[in-house]
Design a protein around this nucleic acid. Structure first.
Length: 502
RNA sequence: GGCGUUAUGGUGUAACUGGUUAACACGUCGCCCUCUCAAGGCGAAGAGUCCGGGUUCGAGCCCCGGUAACGCUACCA
């Protein structure tokens, strides 16, 4: 049993953080965890820090960071320290802190709690396969755990690439306190020798996270439940450095309707989508506040006076009444139906003037209408026909009939498969006409779909018709988040239809 | 497979330190209002609290044992 009672001193000023990775669109899960952290800090006069965890260069998306800032601000969340506003413990972007991690890696190397590992990816993969075949848990085999000095020096002299791994004790266990569920124990035999520093010189989440939380004086780590299993690694790391560790709060994971962890396949998860599709930020933040409990239940008096009001509250009201320790631990389903209802309540509460403004700032903004108008100027004969060609860009959803989306020489089944492939390609394609055209044509060639069939299918799904303004330009204007959502909805709807036919 | 977490109607939540027929909201259905559709009003159906034991006068709340779902099991976070 490892000692673990030391936590941040209770009198220390509260400091919390969220640490999103800029790997794509800002995620509702980030907003949810952000909201809880924000409330916790505001309730206690503490500081809320935003840290960008951009240590994964393979998944890094350059535009992502700004989108995260924008989305959180849109929801009304503000931070006291971060890459954009600075602060006393910066830099707040992990890619700018590599020297710090290197130094800390060296500390662990020096005190024997970590070691250099020269195993190649192939070695590791081979060992992994052997273990899986033998029905053993895949674990680092420990090849480099106790290399002698001479071997290490000669490997280094040969410039062999290496990673730094944590030297997890072979025996005993680590217990930590989760503030929401009590003590949680992991046997060390179930904790792998985690990679701390990758061979590219960047740290992994585990190292960077612990080092930064310590250096930034974080007192409470409020994060998603998926991190519970790696918390013992973090505890071990704090101990290896001889640091006190923060309190840990693991929030339940948002779920799809089928209870799996929320995912884009089954739910729009991009905050950009919600914004562009015309959800009000108050509604989204209110809905997030409903997830997992935390707000006090309505008193009998409130019920008599209209209990409906008890589920509608502003960010300020949340700060006043939300209680983090009252969080429910069962993963709440992120149910669009209720969010839409909430949104409609907020919409109706707007003054007519404010409602009109909301429209003009989003789905009918000058910019949006201007972009659309350039597409159709040469395609209509009277201005009155504006809506004829552009309705699909102003609607929330369209669903083409089968005779529209299935090409003449194709079956519905193969068409659906190809559509799914288009979707997969578009997800990872830069949202410009040039990039999309290239990617789509490449896919078409590989799967022997003619350009005409290829583009017509997309057109049908996006516009609901075989006739529309230029496809790629329309997609750019409609936006990546909404376009992908429409394609996914089409897939899901067809799947459901196919199932009901069976 | 291993480890961990969780478990109240279809969904989100409630139920004081165990105490009457498990409450509220969303959704669904019906009726009213109404030129339509929403909104609004009224009403209904829907869980006996994952299952099985135990403690107790009494258990959704406590204990034991299962099951299921979810998460983790990467040089991703």
């Amino acid at each position: 049993m490892t000692e673990n009672t030391a936590i941040a001193p209770p009198e220390a000023p509260i400091r919390v953080r969220i640490a999103p990775s800029p790997t794509g669109d800002p995620h509702v899960g980030t907003a949810y965890i952000g909201l809880i952290n924000f409330i916790y800090a505001r309730q206690r006069g503490g500081q809320f820090v935003l840290r960008i965890e951009d240590t994964d260069r393979a998944r890094f998306v350059a535009t992502s960071e700004q989108m995260i800032f924008d989305a959180l601000h849109w929801l009304g969340l503000t931070w006291d320290e971060g890459p954009d506003v600075g602060g006393p413990y910066g830099p707040y972007r992990q890619s700018e802190r590599t020297e710090i991690y290197r130094e800390h890696g060296d500390i662990l190397l020096a005190n024997g709690t970590a070691y250099r590992c020269f195993c190649t990816a192939e070695d590791l993969e081979a060992a992994r396969q052997r273990q899986i075949a033998a029905k053993l848990p895949p674990r680092y085999p420990g090849t480099c755990r106790d290399l002698d000095r001479a071997t290490i020096d000669s490997n280094l002299a040969e410039n062999r690439p290496f990673v730094i791994r944590m030297k997890v004790p072979t025996e005993g266990s680590t217990t930590f306190r989760d503030e929401l569920r009590g003590n949680v124990t992991f046997e060390h035999s179930n904790v792998d020798d985690q990679v701390l520093m990758k061979s590219d010189g960047f740290p992994t989440y585990h190292l960077a996270n612990v080092v930064d939380d310590h250096l930034m004086h974080i007192t409470d780590v409020i994060r998603a439940e998926e991190w519970i299993s790696s918390t013992p690694k973090h505890i071990l790391l704090y101990q290896a450095f001889g640091w006190q560790f923060p309190r840990f709060w693991h929030m339940p994971l948002l779920r799809n309707l089928d209870k799996s962890k929320i995912s884009k396949r089954k739910n729009p998860v991009s905050l950009v989508y919600y914004r562009q599709a015309g959800f009000l930020p108050q509604a989204v933040i209110n809905f997030l506040g409903l997830m997992g409990g935390g707000m006090p239940s309505p008193t009998p008096v409130e019920i008599v006076n209209g209990a409906k009001e008890s589920e509608i509250f502003s960010l300020d009201e949340m700060i006043q009444r939300f209680e983090v320790p009252n969080i429910r631990l069962g993963g709440p389903v992120f149910d669009l139906t209720k969010l839409r209802w909430l949104n409609s309540e907020y919409l109706r509460a707007l003054t007519p003037e404010a409602f009109f403004s909301a429209l003009r700032e989003t789905v009918l903004s000058d910019q949006y209408l201007r972009d659309i108008s350039t597409l159709i100027q040469t395609r209509i004969e009277t201005l009155g026909e504006f809506g004829n060609l552009t309705a699909f860009l102003l609607q929330d959803n369209v669903m083409p009939p089968q005779d529209v989306w299935v090409p003449k020489k194709r079956t519905p089944e193969e068409t659906l498969v190809f559509s799914a492939e288009q979707l997969a390609i578009l997800e990872v394609t830069e949202w410009t006409t040039a990039a999309m055209e290239l990617a789509l044509k490449k896919l078409g060639e590989e799967k022997t779909w003619s350009v005409k069939e290829n583009f017509m299918l997309l057109r049908a799904i996006l516009s609901g018709s075989t006739m529309s303004p230029p496809l790629l330009e329309s997609m750019v204007i409609f936006g990546k988040a909404r376009t992908l959502d429409r394609l996914r909805r089409f897939q899901e709807a067809q799947k459901k239809l196919a199932n009901t036919r069976k």
